[in-house]
Amino acid sequence: MFLDVSQLRVHYAGRSRPAVDGVSFSLQAGDIGVLIGPSGCGKTTLLRAVAGLERAQAGSISLAQQTVSSVQNHVPAEARRIGMVFQDYALFPHLDVGHNVAFGLTHLKPAARQQRVREVLDLVGLGKVQLRHPHELSGGQQQRVALARALAPEPRLLLLDEPFSNLDVDLRERLAHEVRGILKLAGATALFVTHDQLEAFAIGDRIGVMHEGRLHQWDDAYALYHRPATRFVADFIGHGVFARAHIEQHGNNVVVHTALGDLTDIEECPLPNAYPGGVCDVLLRADDIVHDDAAPVKAQILRKAFRGSEFLYTLKLKTGETVVAHVPSHHDHALGEWIGIRAEVDHVVTFARE
């Protein structure tokens, strides 16, 4: 592994709990990792520790099989060959784009420096703006200049701290796809921090969900959504609810009883003895619930959010439980209306009841 973080702990003086608590994950060369979680979860502190800006109180960080952080050893930030892209881009307003990108290339001779500036500006699609100043560029262009400047010295690892947070919501996901393409073309290894799930899904090969200093799961986007390792991940990623369920064993078969009927695809479902009396919560995503007027189970529409091609309906069952469902937008039902629904769950995910 190119980046390896093992049981890392970072604890600020005066704080009751560590900002980063026993975090372990790895990143292969050329991959893009993303750290996501609510504000204050420790993701930026973790990024700063990888950069060398925070010291480890326990555990270690290795880059290319060299330990750069541990209790005994701390390689300073400037010696780690790590590039950083910040929220505010940190471009120099008095310098044109070319001189901004060349800022970290003072070790090169002038001709080689100019050649490298041209290469990275072409890489980010800004080859024609070298003589412009930052204020003459759009927010998305400024972000790409900051990316070019970080890539210019050919860092071993690139760190990006919420780089799209100052941009319009509509631009963020598109720019995340563009930046992923640029990083892949450059063969860069990167670690990215965001609180936006769509950004994380658009850019990351591996995504880590953090909460209260701990890393709950480090996986690809599909696994985080469909096979969450903890209840927090299940709740944080995507739209869904936890519905009461009862697991029973009938011979060699396991049946999961819910208010929406029995769930049948239970290959990965735990046995009834995993929970007291077999009673648990089952995760039902919005795409697990299908609108079907012929279905025997009816639910009342409590809320509806128009998403263009679909509605996100919040529905109340006769049992009092609520579920959410993605429904094609030509099914425009009124609030308070009762509609038929059924569950189509590809794999049952259960948690202990709270």
Score class of each variant (00 low, 15 high):
L105V: 03
T106H: 10
L108E: 00
K109D: 14
K109Q: 15
K109E: 15
P110L: 00
A111E: 12
A112L: 12
A112S: 09
A112I: 02
Q114T: 05
Q115D: 13
V117H: 12
R118N: 12
V120L: 07
L121A: 02
D122G: 14
V124F: 02
V124T: 09
V124N: 08
G125P: 14
G125R: 10
G125E: 07
G127V: 03
V129M: 11
L131S: 08
R132F: 01
H133E: 00
P134K: 15
H135S: 10
H135I: 05
E136A: 15
E136K: 14
S138V: 06
S138H: 10
G139E: 00
G140S: 09
G140D: 10
G140I: 05
Q141P: 09
Q141I: 04
Q142W: 02
Q142A: 02
Q142N: 10
Q143K: 07
V145F: 04
V145N: 02
L147P: 15
L147I: 04
R149F: 08
A150Y: 13
L151Y: 12
A152K: 15
P153N: 02
P153F: 06
E154A: 12
R156A: 11
L157Q: 10
L157D: 10
L158K: 03
L158S: 09
L158N: 09
L159F: 03
L159I: 03
L159C: 03
D161L: 05
D161P: 08
D161R: 07
D161Y: 07
E162R: 01
E162N: 07
E162I: 01
E162F: 00
E162L: 01
P163W: 00
P163L: 00
N166P: 06
N166H: 13
N166D: 04
D168T: 06
D170H: 12
R174C: 00
R174N: 06
L175V: 10
A176P: 11
H177Y: 14
H177E: 15
E178G: 06
E178V: 07
R180S: 12
R180W: 08
G181M: 09
G181T: 11
I182K: 11
L183H: 12
K184I: 08
K184N: 10
K184Y: 12
L185E: 13
A186T: 11
G187M: 03
G187R: 00
G187F: 09
A188R: 07
A188V: 05
T189L: 00
T189H: 04
A190V: 04
A190I: 03
L191G: 03
F192T: 02
T194C: 06
T194V: 03
H195A: 05
H195N: 06
D196S: 15
D196Q: 13
Q197L: 08
L198R: 12
L198S: 15
A200D: 06
A200P: 13
